[in-house]
Every structure is written in structure tokens, then in C-alpha cells.
Design a binder for these strands. Structure first.
Lengths: 360, 360
DNA sequence: TTGTAGGCGTTATCAG
DNA sequence: CTGATAACGCCTACAA
């Protein structure tokens, strides 16, 4: 691997001149400049980023910390961030925290030894990320939080309008005539889960609907959690006729549970999720959801970070992106009054309809 | 940020001694050693990875190049790799190529200036990755290819047994009585797509079934491609009764197309995908698929790479992971002979069944 | 067993 | 405008 010294020799100039040409840090006479560029080309020279970073006390890497790349919502965010970063010739160092507080801390602690130009973080939890981030800020390294915020976070952030999105979804269910609305929230120490719950509650209050405390179930943001809590909800009496799920993974689990109990979505139970993941389009029934763009979350976060890197010293930005309600087949008016307590089946009978159909 | 010199002063030893303690590179008397460790603790010292990498000509980063993190199969691979890497205190630098050849080259060219300890690559295409990789190898940097291989790749690799998986799926359809089998393949310049096609063909040959060339459609590995090619297939006469899709994204698109044409899966058309993504569980009908573990692909690749990093000089390894067939509701025997040419609808009527059901 | 010093490849300062 | 030269923080002979 060629280094600067060799380029300098090839171009018969000093090493300093090479550097000047490469960084435009001083005017260099055209013929020398040409010689240098020529040498760079023929040797396919590329500056060693470690040496460069060491000297400048900052690299062109952006650390990105996310809970779990396996959850389909996050890759979209990563992709958005990567696209913006890449086109500004920054690279992403990706770290999974697995929603594990200590792993988040570990990554945060180690990452700065690579002197990243900035950090994009989807916090694992209420953590004292704030404290860590302070250290980065003092070192002149920007930190942008995405999707959810740590306690008392006052730095830059990009989030969706979770409260309003949840409110809209709930209002929609109310308008369809539902009165027994339930919700399955994500972990309530996460700000996004909390905001979605409060949007839900606001809509309920607004139409003066009573909210049975049992109708609010908290769980993890995954399919399994949604499945279990839906079983719980649907065994309550009176049974809720509509469920607002804290995200689409929860909604997916809910769908499975609804089927398994021999109920029909949307006839017996309406369902709305949050995130509007692609996979909601092909479920049975297709899933209604509050749509937010993970990709945009990522691009905006990266843009803000790049601004900071380029010296933007303005006060902390709190970008809140709008959501929209994407209605598909998982919502309908509540079942008509009488058969409120349609009995539950025990076994999965998701094929029942088709068998009946086949005999016709 | 504290550096070694400061630690040395705090511990009243030389900077060399600090290094020796940290790297166990020489015996250090216990009381000095303790002093050093003490200082490291109180100063929360962590060695600067750039300086370290510069000096040792190698960092603890692993470059990972993937086509598109947004395709649900790849995050699993990334996650597997990340888990193994992390627990050996390596970090991942993630690069999307977007299936773009030139972007792959760009990443490959720039990545080595960070002196990564190794590379894990899911190649974008037939590319001359081979040439690039040679450069890395000569620099002592291991490269492992995953999922699909570049032309003439002779380095380490981890792939699924695509041929056998496709064969098994096809055999299953044949056993159910299908004779008009079609397949929608991924881009045939990708080895995994090619292997799956050849497994499909082997099964057909074995039972002496004729393969109408029109029944083989090539497209991109995504939903849209699957959707379009399925429309094409289902308008052929005679219409195929079973489709083997090159991956689950294609299968998803196929599902949409089948619905849109007013046909029923599996009654009119059976469908098997490849990858066994999570989302196949909640589609309507649930999707049968050849199961391969992206996570395992990732962990095994990382393990091989770590071995190389630790000096394993053995000949190139070609790990091929077994697949298994995961049957769900998207397969059934072919429709009984007569109504072969059931007319196609033009519009989406995916709710038709439920409406019928509701009136009963 | 411990300390000293040279150098990894850059950038940045400062003479000339 | 150009060229030496001194860091950046760490590792590692080699000397003491």
C-alpha cells in the first residue's frame, strides 16, 4: 500500500506538497500539482484513514447505535443514515445493543476510541446516555438521537409524531363506532411507547370514553409480546372490539392470537399497528397502521449530524416528523351489539374458512 | 481523553510499562502493575484505536459489505456476524452496495484505508471482487464471502445448500401431484439464484416432467419482481399450478398477484419460497419456504474470519449449510383436472371470501 | 524487570 | 509557493 512518502518521491516533491495538493491546504503551482495527481493515480494512492484520523483527532466515521437490526423497522433507519453519510463520504460503524443497557454503555465507551465524527443513536432505554453523550459533546462530537429519547435528553433529536399518530389511529377506531378500545403498548420507559399511549388516551378522553385499566397492556415491541397480551385482552369480559398496537410487530402477534382464538379480524376485533412496515401489506387481513418513515428518520438524523460536523453551533434541534394513517383491511365497525360474547375457540383454525369454501 | 503518557505519570512508571501491563507483553512486578491498573481505572483510560491500529498495521474492525440492509434477509446475516464479532471485541463497519457494482468497488477500495482485520462480503454480482479481494489477501486481510459468490471465487465462503433446498421444494410440489411447475428465479448472474434454478430443474428431470421454457422467469429478488412475473406466468396457457419462488420476497409478490387475479393460493396455485423469513408466517395463506438461517450464515462467516485473523493458514473453506423445507398453508394438490382454465379476474378481490362468509 | 526511543502515515506549523 | 519537521498515541526492540 503506497504512502505519501512514495508519492512524494514519484512526483519529485516534498511530502508536504503532496499533502497540500490533496487537501487544498495551500496553493501549489500547476505543474507540481499535476505531477502529484499523476503519481496518485498511477499508484492508486489513498490516504491512510487511521493516520489521518490520529493526526486530525477525528475520522470520517459515524457511529450508529441501534437496538436490534433484526427488527424490520431499524434497517430502514440505518439505510437512510447510511445513504446520507455515504454520499458525504462518511462511513457507518454499526453497533447492536440488543436493548441491553450495559451493551449500549460498552459500545458508547469504546466507540470514542475510534474518534468518530459523530454518533447516531436509537437509545435502548431510559439510560443515562445523557451523561455519556455529554462526554462526546465536550470532545466536539455531535450526537443525534432517533426514534426515542433518553431521559432528559436535550441534544439533537429526530422522532415521529408518536402522540398524534396514535391519536389519529384511535380516533379512526372511535369513528367506526368502537367503544371498547384496548391498547398494547411497548415498554413504557421508552418515550415513543409512552407518547403513543398518551395519544391513545387523549383520543379516548376527547370522546369521553371510559378506559378500563385492564385494556392497557404493556409489553416488549415484538411479535411474541403482542401475541401474549392479545390473548390476555381477548379473554377479558367484556371483550374489547378494537386494539391499537404499539407497533407492527405487536400487531402481528395480535393477528396470530386473534386467529388462534377463532375470532376474525376485523369482524370481531379491529386492529391498527404503528410503523407501517412492508409486511403489513401481505398479512391476512392486511394491516392498518400509523405510517412513519424509518428511512426519513435516518436521513434527517444524518443531515443534522453532518451540519454539526461542519460546525453548526445552533441550539439543539428537535425534529418531529409527521405520521399518516394507512388504512387497510384490519379495521371495521364493531360487531353488532348482541353477540358480544361470542365464544372463543381453543385451537388455531385459520384454515377453517378455506375448508368451508372448498366444499361449496 | 486520557492517553498513555498521562497514565504513566499517574502510576509513576514509564509509558512502556503501561503498555506492557495492558498487553501482557512483558512481566511487570505486581506492585507496579497494580499502580498502572489503578490509574487506568480512575482515568477511565481506553487506548486510542487509531494510534494502535496505525502502529500495528491492523485494527479491530471488520468490514461488512452487503447489498441492501433493507431486504429482511440480510439483517439476520449482519446480526449473526455482529454477535460473533462483538463478543471477540471486533466492530463492524457496515456498507450497503445497493446491488450496485461500482458502489461495491468504491467501498472495497476505501475500506482498506481503515486497515480492517478482515472483510465479510455478500457480493453484489458477478463482479471482479476476486481481483480486489486478492489485494486484501496479499495485505494479510482475510475475506469471507457469504450467501453468493463472485465468479471464480476461491477464497473462504459460507453459503446455504441452495441446489438441494430448491430440489426438495420442487420434489414436494411434484409429490402433491403438480405437473405444470413454474419458477421465478432471482438474477441468474447470482450464484444462489442459479443454484436454486438448477435444483428445480434436477427435480423436474428426475421425474421426467417437461419444463416449458416460458415457465422459468428471471427477475430481481424483490416483491415487485415477483408480482410482475407471476402475472406473466398466470396468464400463460396452460396455466402453471405451482410456483417455486427464488426467495420469499418474490413469493410475497406472487401472493399479491395471485390474489389480484382472483385466484386462490393454494387451491389454484401452490407456492413455495426460499429463506423462510419471519413474515411468511403471517401472510395469507402462510408461506411455505425453504428455510435457511441468515443468522448462522453470519456467525459462521465471522468465525471463519476470526480464525484467519488469528493466523489460520489452512486452505480455503467452503461451508455449505443445510436447508430444510418449512411447509405451511401455501401448498396443496393441484386443482382437479377439468377447470384448468378458470377465468382470471381483473381486480383485486382479496376480501371476497370474507364477504361470502359474512352472509352465511 | 523497567525505561528509552524510533517510527507507523498523516497534517500543520513555520522557515525559507 | 515549497520543504523540513514536529506532533498525534501507541507498540516494541533494545538498552539499562
Amino acid at each position: 500500500m503506497a504512502n505519501m512518502k512514495q508519492i512524494a518521491q514519484m512526483a519529485r516533491v516534498s511530502i508536504g506538497t503532496v499533502s497540500h495538493v490533496l487537501n487544498n491546504s495551500a496553493g501549489v503551482r500547476e505543474h507540481l500539482r499535476r505531477r502529484v495527481l499523476q503519481a496518485v493515480q498511477t499508484a492508486r494512492y489513498q490516504p491512510n484513514q487511521l493516520a489521518r484520523g490520529l493526526r486530525r483527532d477525528k475520522t470520517d466515521m459515524i457511529g450508529m447505535i441501534i437496538p436490534d437490526i433484526t427488527n424490520p423497522f431499524f434497517p430502514a433507519v440505518v439505510r437512510g443514515a447510511e445513504d446520507v453519510a455515504f454520499s458525504n463520504s462518511y462511513r457507518l460503524i454499526l453497533c447492536n445493543t440488543d436493548n441491553d443497557h450495559s451493551k449500549e454503555l460498552a459500545h458508547l465507551n469504546e466507540l470514542h476510541t475510534y474518534l468518530p465524527a459523530g454518533l447516531i443513536v436509537i437509545p435502548s432505554n431510559f439510560s443515562d446516555l445523557t451523561v455519556q453523550a455529554e462526554r462526546y459533546r465536550r470532545a466536539g462530537t455531535g450526537v443525534v438521537c432517533v426514534d426515542r429519547l433518553p431521559k432528559n435528553w436535550s441534544g439533537d433529536s429526530v422522532t415521529a409524531d408518536n402522540e398524534q399518530g396514535a391519536y389519529d389511529a384511535t380516533r379512526c377506531l372511535v369513528k367506526l363506532g368502537h367503544t371498547r378500545l384496548a391498547t398494547i403498548t411497548g415498554p413504557l420507559h421508552l418515550t415513543n411507547a409512552k407518547e403513543r399511549l398518551s395519544g391513545f388516551k387523549r383520543a379516548m378522553r376527547e370522546v369521553k370514553l371510559l378506559l378500563n385499566p385492564e385494556y392497557v397492556q404493556e409489553t416488549t415491541f415484538d411479535k411474541r409480546g403482542g401475541y401474549l397480551k392479545t390473548l390476555t385482552l381477548l379473554r377479558l369480559l367484556p371483550r374489547p372490539t378494537a386494539i391499537f398496537a404499539g407497533n407492527d410487530m405487536i400487531a402481528l402477534g395480535a393477528l396470530l392470537a386473534i386467529r388462534e382464538l377463532g375470532l376474525n379480524c376485523p369482524k370481531d376485533v379491529s386492529l391498527i399497528g404503528f410503523d407501517d412496515l412492508d409486511l403489513g401489506e401481505t398479512t391476512d387481513p392486511s394491516l392498518s397502521s400509523v405510517s412513519q418513515s424509518g428511512y426519513q428518520l435516518g436521513t434527517r438524523a444524518a443531515s443534522i449530524l453532518l451540519d454539526r460536523i461542519q460546525g453548526d453551533k445552533s441550539p439543539a434541534k428537535h425534529l418531529v416528523l409527521e405520521t399518516s394513517l394507512d388504512l387497510r383491511n384490519s379495521v371495521a365497525p364493531p360487531p353488532s351489539g348482541n353477540r358480544v360474547t361470542k365464544p372463543l375457540k381453543r385451537r388455531n383454525r385459520r384454515d377453517g374458512q378455506e375448508i368451508v369454501h372448498a366444499t361449496s
